[in-house]
């Protein structure tokens, strides 16, 4: 190969690749709106809040960002919105152990941001993030009714037991020692902020009295 032919191959080959990229880009742009919900004014306002506070400086979204804090793509699926709102306004009042600082976010901004995160959670991402394949296999064999309810309602999204689970709410590993009273747990599960002032946990009123009792009995076994 001569230098000139190598040069021509470089110039025309690259141009061809670029043309293909432009064609694929045009095709993609035509398809993106069908793969995501409609963008309302609130969602757009939320996106602006996302940019204003440079959230991507710590978090990732759609897997891109800073790897210092959890991915936000499915945040509204993983955490109750009521919790998220209180947390965004004053993170450490809700979860003293969190690394997230307070930015002075207003209620309006928090609502908008949650609307934006709700929008991202519904984008068709070709199945990302995948469901953890080994989680389903862990600890389900000899579960009591209460333990199954704990799993069914995804309590571990916020609470940890022996190192497994989220850190948004208190660790429940020794909750049976700390709160041995079944009746307290039932009242708390129904309406958390009636028992613990300013609690960001959502109430679980959709559970029957019997289910609440089973769940509470499971909780006091944790010690």
């Amino acid at each position: 190969m001569t230098t000139t032919s190598a040069k021509n191959l470089f110039i025309y080959g690259s141009l061809l690749c670029f043309v293909v990229l432009v064609i694929l880009t045009i095709d993609t742009m035509g398809k993106l709106d069908q793969r995501a919900p409609v963008i309302t004014e609130k969602v757009d306002a939320g996106k602006k809040v996302w940019h204003k506070y440079d959230c991507i400086g710590c978090h990732t979204i759609l897997g891109n960002g800073s790897y210092f804090a959890p991915d936000m793509t499915k945040a509204t699926e993983r955490k109750p919105k009521g919790y998220l709102k209180k947390f965004l306004i004053d993170p450490r009042a809700i979860n003293p152990g969190t690394a997230m600082p307070s930015f002075g976010m207003s209620e309006q901004e928090a609502d908008d941001l949650i609307a934006f995160l709700d929008w991202t959670s519904k984008v068709d991402t070709n199945g990302w993030p995948p469901k953890p394949i080994l989680a389903a296999a862990a600890g389900t064999r000899t579960a009591s009714m209460g333990q199954m309810l704990f799993q069914k309602h995804d309590c571990s999204a916020c609470h940890q037991i022996q190192g497994i689970g989220g850190t948004a709410g208190p660790d429940l590993t020794y909750i049976g020692n700390e709160r041995p009273d079944v009746e307290w747990h039932i009242r708390h599960l129904k309406a958390p902020d009636a028992v613990v002032p300013d609690s960001a946990m959502p109430g679980f009123n959709d559970l029957s009295e019997e289910e609440l009792r089973q769940l509470a009995e499971y909780l006091i076994t944790l010690k």
Partner: peptide, 30 residues
């Protein structure tokens, strides 16, 4: 110069459309 052209040619042949590896999971077509 000849080798440089071959190198940069291959960089762009693979790199321009290699952009696709960022478009797996962000809401772009399959």
């Amino acid at each position: 110069a000849k080798w440089m052209y071959i190198e940069v040619g291959l960089v762009l042949f693979t790199g321009i459309l290699g952009l696709g590896h960022h478009y797996y999971w962000i809401g772009t077509p399959e």
